[in-house]
Every structure is written in C-alpha cells, then in structure tokens.
Computed example of a mutant assay.
Amino acid sequence: MTTSTGRADAAQRPMSLSPSRASDFMRCPLLYRFRVIDKLPEKPSEAATRGTLVHAVLERLFDDPATERTAPRARAMVPGQWDRLLESKPELVELFAEDPRGERLSHWLEQAEELVERWFTLEDPTRLEPAERELFVETELQSGLRLRGIIDRVDVTPSGDVRVVDYKTGKAPRPEYAEGALFQMKFYALVIWRWKGLVPRRLQLVYLGSGDVLTYDPVEEDLERVERKLLALWDAIKEATETGEWLPRRTKLCGWCDYQAVCPEFGGTPPVYPLSVRPAESAGEDQGRMGPV
C-alpha cells in the first residue's frame, strides 16, 4: 500500500535492534515509530551535543602518549573538537544562533571542560591502553534478530578479561533505577558473548555529571535473560510494524520529546503510516508495558 504522501518507497521495516532503539520502544512505542519508521527530524539539544563533544575528547585523548594524557591537555582539546563537530554537523550552529555575544556558547564549552576534567578523578588514563574505542559491534542471534551498537571503550587485561566502558555526561541514577541504567551495557555484553563467545568480566558506567562509577559483573544467566527479553521486544516491534499500531505512552520524559505536535497524547496526529499493514488483531496490547531488563 502506497500512502498519499508517497513515503512508502523511502520507509523500511526495522532490520536490527540497538540499545537506544530498544529503550525507545520500552519507553514509548510511538517514539520508536517516529524515529525508526517515519525518521522524523529532531532538533539538536545542548545536553546531547555536549555529550557528543565530551565523548570525542575522551576518545581522541588516547591518541596521545600516556604521559601527555593530562587534565589540562584534555580541557584544551574541547574547543578544537567543537570546531570539528561543527564541520561534520553544520546544523549544530543553530544551538547558539541567538547568542550574538557568545556568552552561552562560552559557558556551554566550560561545562564540557568541567566534565572532561572530572573524568580524571574517576580513571587514570596514563594507566589505560584501550583495546578499542568507539567500537561498532554486531551479531545475529539464532532467531535471526540482528543486534548492533557502538561501545565507547573496551579494555582487555593481559589475562584476556574484557571490560566494557561507557561514558555518561549526566548524573548516576538512584539505586532503584540502576538496573534500567545497566540495560545498555548488558545489551553490549550479550552482543560480545554471541559474537566472540566470551562474557565480559566487567561492565562499567562512568557518570561524569555526578562523579560516580557504576560497575556490574555479568554471568551467562544474566545475558540469557537479556536475550529472551530482546526477543520478546522484537516480536512486539514486528507486530506493531505489520499492523501499524504504535501505542503512545506518556512518561515524565515527554516534556523533552520533539514529537509532541504529532503525538495523540498531546492532541497531535501522527503522519500517515508509510508501510503496508495487515488488519490488527490483538496487536500492541503489551507494548506500553515493556519493563526494563
């Protein structure tokens, strides 16, 4: 079925799952649809862009010899990495379009520098030689589900133990929400296990916003549970894709969503669904209740 907007030719059915998109669906199935099926644009945010900038600095710092990986050196890298980011994504200039004197930009860059500097209180880069940085990982499960993602850093000890590290520029979650925060890391651990046949020794989340480090040592039973959860999640995504039934789910995060204008929860109307559908039966009944792993 071709829609009146002609978008059916451009739209594609989901072919793989990443931690971010899995989290989107668990948070709000309609959000997943807008990002994956409709590919609706989103405005860049200062917080997300600052996270990208800090990640770039921490990645490139390891290009330098160990003795040169200092906090002043890392802070000094921030403006240059911001220029590189603008070159690759010119649209980011809109973030500070209404800042003619550059005061907001200066404060924003200073915040990024502070996050970078705080990292040195949590880890010692002079003693680290990452095996991988910004590593793209991908594997296909026996079910045919393809999992993929990008890991910030992978450390390997001389004995072969693997540590998966992810930087977060926000604050660490409260203990009752730690399990949800580890979902992304368990996802990566599952991919590595099914891809390489080994379970990472440690998963580590480094929260630069609060100066906390959250660690978890997974075992195979953990990852098997994650795999079952992802398979159930993928079944729900396929069902929604085939029926076109993507249920919105209102949460505290809706206030930061760019799609309120087209969300029924806020009086909006989603764009015409760009894929062919079959008649809905009992599709989507549990979409809004997918819990964290």
Rank of each mutant, 00 (worst) to 15 (best):
S18I: 05
E117H: 04
R27D: 12
V272N: 12
G149T: 04
V164T: 06
W108C: 01
A48H: 11
R127F: 09
Q260K: 15
D166E: 10
E242I: 02
L275A: 00
A283C: 06
A74C: 00
Q287L: 15
M26T: 15
R60V: 09
L86N: 03
Y216W: 07
E245Q: 12
S18V: 12
T169V: 11
T126C: 09
W246Y: 12
L53N: 00
A232V: 07
G244E: 09
S20R: 11
G144E: 01
R194C: 09
I237M: 00
C257K: 02
L105V: 02
R289G: 09
L53Q: 00
G209E: 02
L135Q: 07
L40M: 10
D38H: 04
A56H: 07
P44V: 02
T3A: 13
P270I: 04
L85W: 07
V36T: 06
P44C: 03
P271M: 09
P29A: 09
V36C: 05
E91A: 06
E59Y: 07
K252S: 13
A280H: 09
L17N: 01
D24C: 12
R84P: 06
R228K: 15
Y167E: 11
T49H: 10
K229P: 09
V191N: 01
L122E: 04
F96R: 00
D24V: 06
D9W: 11
R50M: 14
A189M: 04
D64A: 13
D124N: 07
P125I: 09
R153D: 08
K89L: 13
P19C: 07
V154P: 04
S282F: 11
E94G: 07
L275N: 01
R289Q: 06
L95E: 10
G284W: 01
V137L: 02
R194K: 15
R201V: 08
R73Y: 11
Y32R: 00
Y32M: 02
E176T: 11
R153L: 14
V54K: 07
Y207D: 02
G244I: 00
E221Y: 15
T241F: 01
R84T: 05
V272L: 14
V116A: 01
D258H: 14
P248L: 02
E103T: 05
R278M: 07
G180Q: 12
G170N: 06
P200L: 01
K43F: 06
E176G: 14
E103K: 04
L53S: 01
G144Q: 05
P19A: 02
R201K: 14
P274N: 11
R118W: 01
S16I: 15
P14E: 03
A74E: 01
A178R: 15
E114G: 05
E242K: 11
L122G: 08
R201H: 15
V162H: 13
R33W: 06
A74F: 00
P100S: 00
I37Q: 00
W82M: 00
T52W: 04
V165D: 09
T157I: 03
W82T: 01
E46K: 14
Q142V: 15
R101F: 14
M290G: 03
R13W: 10
D161I: 13
V213P: 00
K168N: 04
R35P: 00
F34M: 04
D38Y: 02
E103V: 14
P248G: 04
D286G: 10
D99K: 08
R73G: 03
T126F: 12
V272F: 06
A56W: 06
V57F: 03
R50E: 12
L198T: 15
G180F: 10
R7F: 11
